[in-house]
Computed example of a mutant assay.
Amino acid sequence: MKKISIVIITLTIGLLSCKKEKKETETTEIATEARKEIKTTLVAKNDSNVSGKVVFKEEDKQVIMTAIISGLEAGQHAIHIHESSDCSAPDGTSTGGHWNPTAQPHGKWGANGGYHKGDIGNFTADENGNGTISFTTDEWCIGCDDENKNIVGKAIIVHAGVDDFTSQPSGAAGARISCAGIIE
């Protein structure tokens, strides 16, 4: 009887420790998947002096983009995600057009008439040429398998002008004055 009790106790302890190890592993995997982050640096284009930092964070199926930009002319400027992370061209055109995986017309984010997944919008630079913008969406992801949402391999572009939200296909936002690849 003692031998049976010892075997049962040993098996119970073994099962509990396996269960605990499995739970810790699952928690770690969930924590890793719950938060992803990409930091990138804006590089001046078209003979501008525009630079800055852009951070993309994914938490709870939401991507938060925060951009801090300097060297701008005071006033409003457009910012978009473009098709390719290739910022090698002096005028930024190596990034291609706006990122538009769902083949929608250009427009204001959330508009009923449609919008590109890269149509972020406008932000304002102060009299010192500094501007910031923060944007949150569940329509992007960082490194996921959904090509309609994955922003990795794309570029963030700051434009000289304002996005009018109607001109096709780009909103008539003017020259590309700063670029950063969104790369893991």
Rank of each mutant, 00 (worst) to 15 (best):
K45A: 12
V50E: 03
L11M: 13
A31Q: 13
C18F: 10
Q62H: 09
A31L: 08
V43L: 04
K53A: 13
G52A: 07
T66A: 09
T41E: 14
G71T: 13
K57H: 00
I38G: 04
E26N: 08
T41M: 07
T27H: 02
M65H: 02
E37K: 13
G71R: 10
E58Q: 14
N49C: 02
R35K: 15
I68V: 15
A44C: 11
V43F: 00
T40W: 04
E58A: 07
E33I: 08
T41N: 06
I69P: 09
T66R: 10
I68Y: 09
T12M: 13
E37C: 08
S51D: 13
D47R: 10
E59K: 12
G52C: 04
G52K: 09
E59R: 11
K53N: 14
G71F: 12
E59G: 09
K22Q: 13
T40Y: 04
E24H: 03
T32K: 13
V54H: 07
A34W: 02
T41R: 04
K20C: 03
T27M: 03
T27S: 03
K36D: 01
F56S: 02
K36I: 10
Q62Y: 14
K36Q: 08
K39E: 11
E26F: 02
T10Y: 05
V50Q: 03
L42A: 06
M65A: 09
T40G: 04
N49K: 12
K61M: 05
S51N: 15
E73S: 15
E24Y: 01
L72S: 06
T40F: 01
G71S: 07
F56G: 01
C18P: 00
T41L: 11
K57L: 01
V43R: 00
T12R: 01
V63R: 02
Q62K: 15
M65R: 06
E24R: 07
K57M: 05
E29S: 03
M65K: 03
K23E: 07
A44M: 07
V55P: 00
I38T: 05
E33M: 05
D60I: 01
D47T: 13
K22N: 11
V63S: 06
L16W: 07
T28D: 05
N46Y: 06
V55C: 00
V50K: 01
K39T: 14
G52H: 07
S51I: 13
T27L: 12
K45R: 09
I38V: 14
I64H: 12
E24K: 10
L42Q: 10
V43Y: 00
C18M: 15
E73Y: 11
K20P: 00
F56N: 10
S51F: 04
G14W: 02
T40S: 15
S70W: 01
A44E: 14
K57R: 05
T25Q: 12
T27D: 06
I30Y: 03
D47V: 08
V55D: 02
G14M: 07
T32Y: 04
C18D: 08
K39W: 01
E58T: 09
E37T: 13
N49L: 04
M65G: 01
V43I: 12
T41I: 10
F56R: 02
A31F: 00
K19S: 14
I68N: 15
T66Y: 08
I69C: 09
K57V: 14
S17D: 04
